[in-house]
Structures are given as C-alpha cells and as structure tokens.
Design a protein around this nucleic acid. Structure first.
Lengths: 108, 108
DNA sequence: CAGGATCCGAGCGGATACTG
DNA sequence: CAGTATCCGCTCGGATCCTG
C-alpha cells in the first residue's frame, strides 16, 4: 500500500498515466501535453512507471529514433480507481475550495 | 484535480485519514498508530487536512489539554475512492513486486 | 499533552549544455 | 528525437529544545 501511495504521490505519475490512457504517446508529445513538467521530471516519472510495470517503453530504431510509451494491462487496470478519485475531486471541488478559503480567513 | 493529488501526494495524509476512519483520535494516539511519522510531520499533515476540510480539530480545555481529530463528512466521503485504491493495491501487490524485480534485474 | 521554534543535512527539481 | 550530465537553489523532513 505504501508503495502504491508513493507512486501516486510522485505528483506527476498520475498525470502521465492519464495522458497515456487514450493512446500510446512519444516523449515530446507527453512533454507538450504536460505543460509544467520538465524534461528531467518526465524522464524520471516514465522510468518510475516503467519499473512498476504500469507502462511499456518501445524504441523504434528509426533515424532519428522514436520512443513510444504505452499503458500495460496493469496500468490500464489502475485507471479505474484513479477515475474514482477524479470523480470525487470534480464533485467536491467547490466544497474543497470553500473549506480552504474559510480556513485561511480564520487564520488571518 | 492537481489539488487533490497534492493532498494524496503528501504521503502521510492518506494514512492519517485511514487512522481516523474508525473513530476520532488524539494526537499521541495517531503518533503511536503511524510508526514512522515524526511529530513534526504529523502536525503538518493534520493542518493540511484540516485546511482542506477533511478533518475537524477539537480542543478540550482540560488540564492537560486534550485535542481530538475527527473526519468531517467530506473526509468520510473521500474514503470511498481511497478504498478503491487500496483494493487495487491488494489485488495487484504480487504483480507489482514482480514487475519491479524484473525491471531491477534487467538493469543489473 | 499537544505543539511551536530552530538548526541542519539530504534530495527534489529546474535550467542549461551536451550526446547518439 | 530522446534523452544524459552537471550545477545549484530550495524545500522536505528529522532531531532537539522549549512552552501553555
């Protein structure tokens, strides 16, 4: 459990998974899809996800080389629970912001 | 969404929520329940969760003072999605470890 | 008992330059 | 194109001491 949390916790990994959900993507495509991620962080996140068996990395020996990242079956199966989190977040977004504003106001 | 991820990402917050799910707890009780957390990190996590409206903090003016932390309705409602993640983690624990072992072996 | 304050080392993560 | 390498500021987080 701790393990999984550390993955989700990685802050970018979940966004990467979402970017790959529809179809496999290439490195620079992902870079463009995730506006605030740096090359370095994207590389790290991809390695982390690959290590966990969530994504597959395929290198095409073209020139220049192309690298494709795709969700594994296990990666896809994780999307269910993630969707459930997203649903919650959307449903409670307003309440969440309100709670924070209230708290911050009380501290001022 | 980013917001929620940052919460979950806080690495301890989810564990704190789980510790509070059954019944309200006091500070030192939580400290004992979460073996590897430091006082400082527990305080931070609690503040963060309070700010987000996930938990309530109640001070009893006894001597010495007692402070109780309890899930709010919103906090409880988040447990559903979290349970779904936990279920996934339990179901895929073996596959996850295997994937990691495989990856690490390939790198060696 | 519940925590704030302070100090400090380790690592996260960005920017830039370089490679196959 | 898809990275790696290096430098470096900054925050995370532990340890310790102090308070109401």
């Amino acid at each position: 459990m701790r393990d999984l949390l550390d993955h989700i916790a990685a802050k970018w990994t979940t966004l990467v998974l979402l970017a790959l959900e529809q179809e496999p993507r290439r490195f620079n495509t992902l870079l463009r899809m995730l506006p605030d991620i740096s090359r370095r962080m994207l590389t790290q996140s991809l390695r982390d996800l690959e290590r966990g068996g969530f994504i597959d990395r395929t290198v095409f020996p073209t020139k220049p080389p192309a690298v494709q990242y795709a969700l594994t079956p296990m990666g896809h199966s994780l999307m269910g629970p993630i969707r459930s989190l997203i649903g919650w977040a959307e449903a409670n977004e307003t309440a969440l912001n309100a709670a924070r504003a209230r708290y911050d106001a009380a501290q001022a």
